[in-house]
């Protein structure tokens, strides 16, 4: 049984301007100890998907349908107290901006202890002991001296370590990391990713890594899902995705990726803006930005279909197999040759 199984998840927000459908029928599953990388631009619905999973979208403004089964239990429609027991205890979460994700007026130690005390009937001193332990684990130097500092006395990378420590303090089965490295400098990014990997190896925690950076996915994930316009547009084992991406949006993402294996010296931006979720385009959501779009793309939403090579590799695109292969081969050559010229 998968640890997390999401089926046909739809999240709609009621706003003053109308209904915004942020998530439109997302399904995926994640096994224990596995890492799922969720990739997409801002506004692709990747963060909302997992806020919905956690029950953190405001029910006064949002309608949610579908199913979220965590360890066999349905989370959608579960009582607040049920959700509360799962949050922080069985599912930890890390957010993008460590500068604002910690309460500025509470000490680090207090915030860690709070995470323990919410879910465990232990003394404050026991909670403090665990907090120190987990701070050591996330490699905060002199943790016993720093535990009573306030967040503003920590650097960004250190704060993200604190966030990780806080997410992991109750040894959850699943860690949802929403762009955990985006706000950090490159060196710190690498350290944080290494740390997460290490902790996953030690504790066997499943991770959902939400990112707009395919590099992070390549480094950390087992499976990858590419989201666009509130839908999963391609999903595969990580190596399959990088070896044979099946649709133009993923090609674009790969083109904009500074990578060690398929290295491009020139970053290719995907032209255009992400689609409006308030008034999504007809047909394929990517069609206004797609260089290969034809009439069908503008009329008909492509189904998620398996790739010719692997049944686990699925994608949405109206282009036929031959065209896609031809275009990707040319694209790949172009990326590699650019590297050659530059070298």
């Amino acid at each position: 049984m998968a640890l997390l199984e999401v089926t046909d998840l739809v999240t709609r927000f009621r706003t003053d301007d109308g209904i915004v459908q942020a998530v439109s029928g997302v399904s995926f599953s994640l096994d224990r100890g596995q890492t799922l990388g969720v990739v997409g631009e801002s506004g692709s619905g990747k963060s909302v998907t997992f806020l919905t999973v956690m029950g953190l979208v405001d029910p006064r403004h949002a309608d949610v349908t579908g199913s979220v089964r965590f360890d066999g239990n349905e989370l959608l429609g579960a009582s607040f107290s049920t959700l509360r027991k799962i949050r922080g205890q069985r599912i930890g979460m890390i957010f993008q901006d460590p500068m604002t994700s910690l309460n500025p007026v509470k000490r680090i130690g207090w915030q860690l202890e709070e995470a323990v005390l919410i879910h465990n009937d232990v003394s404050r001193s026991e909670a403090r002991r665990r907090s120190l332990e987990v701070l050591d684990e996330v490699e905060i130097p002199r943790a016993d001296a720093r535990i009573d500092d306030y967040p503003h006395q920590f650097s960004g990378g250190m704060r993200q370590r604190v966030m990780i420590a806080m997410a992991l303090i109750n040894q959850p089965d699943l860690l949802i990391a929403d762009e955990p490295t985006t706000a950090l400098d490159v060196t710190t990014q690498a350290q944080i990713l290494r740390l997460m990997k290490k902790l996953q190896d030690e504790h066997g925690t499943a991770i959902v890594m939400i990112t707009h950076d395919l590099g992070v996915v390549a480094e950390l994930a087992d499976d990858a899902a590419v989201m666009y316009g509130g839908r999963i547009v391609e999903e595969a084992k990580v190596q399959d995705l990088f070896a044979q991406p099946e649709m133009p949006y993923t090609w674009g993402l790969l083109g904009s990726l500074p990578r060690a294996d398929i290295t491009a010296a020139r970053l290719e931006q995907i032209p255009g803006q992400p689609p409006s979720l308030l008034r999504p385009p007809n047909g394929c959501a990517f069609n206004p930005r797609c260089a290969y779009a034809f009439d069908r793309c503008r009329a008909e939403l492509p189904e998620l279909r398996p790739s010719p090579t692997s049944g686990e590799h699925r994608f949405r695109c109206h282009l036929d197999d031959a065209d896609r292969l031809r275009i990707w081969t040319a694209k790949k050559a172009e990326l590699t040759s650019t590297e050659g010229t530059a070298a």
């Binding site: 953190l56 509360r84 922080g88 930890g92 309460n103 709070e114 995470a115 966030m163 806080m166």
Partner: peptide, 22 residues
């Protein structure tokens, strides 16, 4: 709407705790 309030919720804090402590 601050991030740290979302953090507190993600930690499993009750509404009252979120309000009074954060």
């Amino acid at each position: 709407s601050e991030d740290f309030v979302r953090t507190a919720r993600a930690k499993g804090a009750s509404s009252a705790r979120v309000l009074f402590q954060h």
